[in-house]
Design a protein around this nucleic acid. Sequence first.
RNA 1: GGGUAGGUUGAGCAGGUGGUGAGCUCCGCUGACUGUAGAUCAGCCGUCUUCGACUGUGGGGGUUCGAUUCCCUCCCUGCCCA
Length: 389
Amino acid sequence: MASTASPTDRAPRAQFTFRPTRTGRARLGRLTTPHGDIDTPQFMPVGTQATVKSLTPNDLRTTGTQIILGNTYHLSLRPGGERVARLGGLHRFMAWDGPILTDSGGFQVFSLAHLREVDDDGVTFASHLDGSPQRITPERSMQIQELLGSDIAMTFDQLVDPTLPQPQVEAAMTRTHRWAERCLAAHSRPDQALFGIIQGGVDVELRRRSSAEIAALPFDGLAVGGLSVGESKADMASTLDVVADALGDDPRVRYLMGVGSPLDFFIGVERGIDLFDCVLPTRVARNGQLWTNEGRLNLRNARFVDDGAALDAECGCETCRDYSRAYLAHLFRAEELLAYRLASVHNLTYTLDLMRRIRAALAEGSFGSLRETVAGQYERAEARSVSRQ
RNA sequence: GGGUAGGUUGAGCAGGUGGUGAGCUCCGCUGACUGUAGAUCAGCCGUCUUCGACUGUGGGGGUUCGAUUCCCUCCCUGCCCA
């Protein structure tokens, strides 16, 4: 049943084993890294600046976090890759001894579009901190990620708005492929895995080509990038179908970058995705939106100020165990720092628990029923929201 | 009792010495957020029939074509003097 990964011959780094399920293309698996194992499907909280905002590593453990994500661009600007290396690497620096995946800085090519210039060799950013010019190339991205010492490094890629004209999407894809080869050539750390990134917007033919070209290279894992950046859910789903078709029975771990919301996980999992990361659960938590078994709740809404109930009766996290909705509503209104921590603890616990429920459902063959249950919760919440207006 | 400075939409203010005051910051209400330049951002925040219109500058009266502005009077608040 278990099939092994890594067509490379280097490697006591990430090893992936999985078994198919009776649910579409969904897989149940385990990813082994130097800092621990990861059950898949799995969600990775985002800790861009060597911290998952407002949470300690101990908090992360209590939420069930198995692996976190850090960012090459941010950490290279501050405190600097070389400094982190001198201080013992990213795990030791931030006191998180579990697995870490680092993004390459590729997303900042997209999100900081007005602060950078792209050429075939790399990207020049105006630092968002002080405006100073910062050059990132595939080679430099690999160097920084090796200095950080993450368990999994990502290739440096270029993602673009998928609604751009096809030639521009294709140009970025082609560049991403060249850069992927350069990342492979430059990458040298034997205890660090390297994942390639598939691009191509929402164009069927480009996604097919990108999937084939990236899969042909000896990466330890395959990522799908450039989605959830404004395209419709239908486009995201159909693009994932195209990628899944193109990858066929490739045994490597599959990572859908930057996704997502509770319902997005179902879209990805049933199309063979093993790993997800997203800022959403932690960002929206800081902005007062909590994900629960009653759907999305905005704790800043007036209706919660007298609500003495637990946030989510079905959740066992510290926030739901010890505090009321009214207290959380108060903390948000008062802009007390504890609000951000308690909300983040809950949303991550919820998200990681949802992934656990998804794995259990895949094992039991009840994925469809879980999906309907969760979809119903979020639709009911939306309906409530609408009816109040 | 005398003097003086004030009274502007929930709060705090700006403005305005005869013609156009709904402007700001809080508070409040709602929404957004997808590989984090985000504990952020956006909209609303007098009333209504809301792409528009109406009302509103402590109360009352006066002068004037027209008053938030000038005059009279009353009320309220702060400060000073007695």
